[in-house]
Amino acid sequence: MSQNDDALRSARFRAEREAKWRNLEALVSQAETRSTRRMGYHDVRNLVDLYRQATTSLAIAREISLDKALLAYLEALTARAYLTVYAPQTPVGGVMWRFFSKGAPQALRRSGVLILLGVVCMGLGVLAGYLLYFENADWFYVFMPTELAGGRTPEATTGDLLDAIYSDTSVETGALGAFASYLFSHNTRIAFLVFGLGLFLCAPALILTFLNGLTLGAFLALHVERGIGWDLGGWLSIHGVTEIGAICVACAGGLKLGSAAMFPGMRSRADSLRHAGHDAAKLAIVAAFMLIVAAILEGFARQMVQDMVWRYVLGWGIGALWLSWAITTGKERIS
């Protein structure tokens, strides 16, 4: 060591600690690539230890050193080490399984009342649409968007209506295409809107759910009037139970956000929204998953199962499965 070296305090400071910093740097990159849970006990202990020492070094260096490169190195090193120590990777394994076995059903149960509210809303819509149709058949055109009806209006003959119920459309468009077009159908859009609009103080979500019920009620009334109500029921059941369930769940998610914004309680509004977001996000994923299942049922199963009774059995059977999943799974025993 020359005289010059000994004289420069910051250079001495650096020379004494350099090895530890390099060691920390190696440990940090190891922790980032392999995660701390797979590192040995000593390595993890050293990582934390060296990190604390490095923060002290940084504090001193800021005071005594004018070496820009050294300061930048220490700033970057400590920040990087901070992330590995305080914000390590959360375990990814079993995320899906945890969601479906615990998170989602628990969220569904917590939001049971809201889902019921969605169901009631939809039910009232169906009832109103049904009764209004019998009062005056022109209501059908008010409730039903023309592109959705696809020619199945009060003007169509009973035979046409029956053909639509027991037709096999998948032959022309290809299975995947049919699946895709069903998934991006009217109801998916409704579910998205219902969820998103819930944020604006609940009302749009409820109104939209009700309107969707009106459409369904009028459509049902048309077929009941022709005496083929049961056939339509089967056609709707096979995917509709799941699909309408999804809309109700999405509605509950929207209501959750809306009610959090309206009645924040002891929390601030933003905080309350963030809290409600936990369940709302889970409900949104459940709704999306149900819509995908519904599209599969609509795209494949409805063409394969042409018998009315089996359509009922399949549709409501799957509905019962959803319900039992939501009610029974993921209960934690309190010991």
């Binding site: 740097e25 190195y73 977001g277």
Partner: peptide, 22 residues
């Protein structure tokens, strides 16, 4: 804001030799 996150530049520690050293 909803999720409680933000995005940062990941600092890159670059170790350079001491200049004031013989």
């Amino acid at each position: 804001i909803l999720a409680g996150t933000h995005v940062v530049h990941l600092p890159q520690p670059v170790f350079l030799p001491e200049l004031a050293k013989s």
